[in-house]
Design a binder for these strands. Structure first.
Lengths: 147, 147
DNA sequence: TTGCTCCTCACGTCACGTGAGGTGGC
DNA sequence: TTGCTCCTCACGTCACGTGAGGTGGC
């Protein structure tokens, strides 16, 4: 369900859309993984955007698939956060050298994530091969039975 | 360094060989993930075999790669433990029907693990594709600069 | 007005990490 | 004998789960 205008979301909606719980969202805000709108008075409801849902989804995905601690994750995503900042700077500068520098940084961040993901994928493929090998051995012995 | 005879290992050696800490090994014994030689007197040193190292390695691997809780893991490995038991029964019975039943169970356990591993691998491949796609978009915009 | 979701403590839990103080084997 | 590794409590930590008691928006 895509919303056209930037409607404000409540914490329960964000949690459901991202596939987690309100408590987790609050915790992430507490440790600084999520912005946490600074101008919120004590006891007031938190407001979120659809971009926040995306951010939470990304956090959960990297947490689950890469098995990183939230501390490691925040450092990895710091780059991501910086990129949004850089994108603004990028639009503001005309200097091609400056533009190239910003782009190169972005590429570096992507590359770091890619290497982590690749390493994990290779490990999983190795495990998968071993399991298939195990299965073959059992099946072979099964066919011996009916011989 | 492979040892021919079944030399007894100390907890520190097991931890090092398996890539973890003594504390983790003790904890796994405490919650029943590792056998924990029952005839050990209070304060006496724990004794391990090379098979134990393999078991610990397997636990760590599945824990890390599949992101399961130790409770889920113990249920998954219960099958593995049962298989060792079944292997004995298997050798003892002559009945081909009984043999087939035992084999089929083993196949089922492997299949369960394989499905978990496959699902994870697919998720990682998807993430990898998205990162590559991101990289392409940035590179394309980079080439615009030098045009 | 009635539910429902939200809020903030705050304690519980899982999977260990990390000393504290003491005993055992090359 | 001297280190080193081992032992058992036991408290600390990370990433939340789970009520307890109270307030706010359709």
């Amino acid at each position: 369900v895509s919303v056209v205008a930037g409607r404000s979301l409540r914490i329960g909606e964000v949690a459901e859309l991202a596939g987690t719980t309100p408590r987790t969202i609050r915790y992430y805000e507490e440790i600084g993984l999520l912005p946490g709108s600074s101008e919120r008075a004590q006891g007031e409801h938190r407001c979120f955007t659809e971009a926040d849902v995306g951010r939470v989804r990304e956090i959960l995905r990297l947490r689950d698939l890469l098995g990183l601690s939230l501390d490691q994750l925040s450092r990895l995503l710091e780059a991501e956060t910086a990129r949004a900042e850089l994108r603004r700077e990028y639009a503001e500068t005309e200097d091609p050298g400056e533009r190239r520098r910003i782009r190169d940084q972005a590429l570096g961040h992507i590359e770091t994530q890619l290497e982590l993901v690749r390493a994990r994928r290779l490990e999983l493929e190795q495990l998968e091969r071993e399991l298939i090998e195990k299965r073959v051995r059992i099946t072979d012995r099964l066919s011996e039975l009916t011989r």
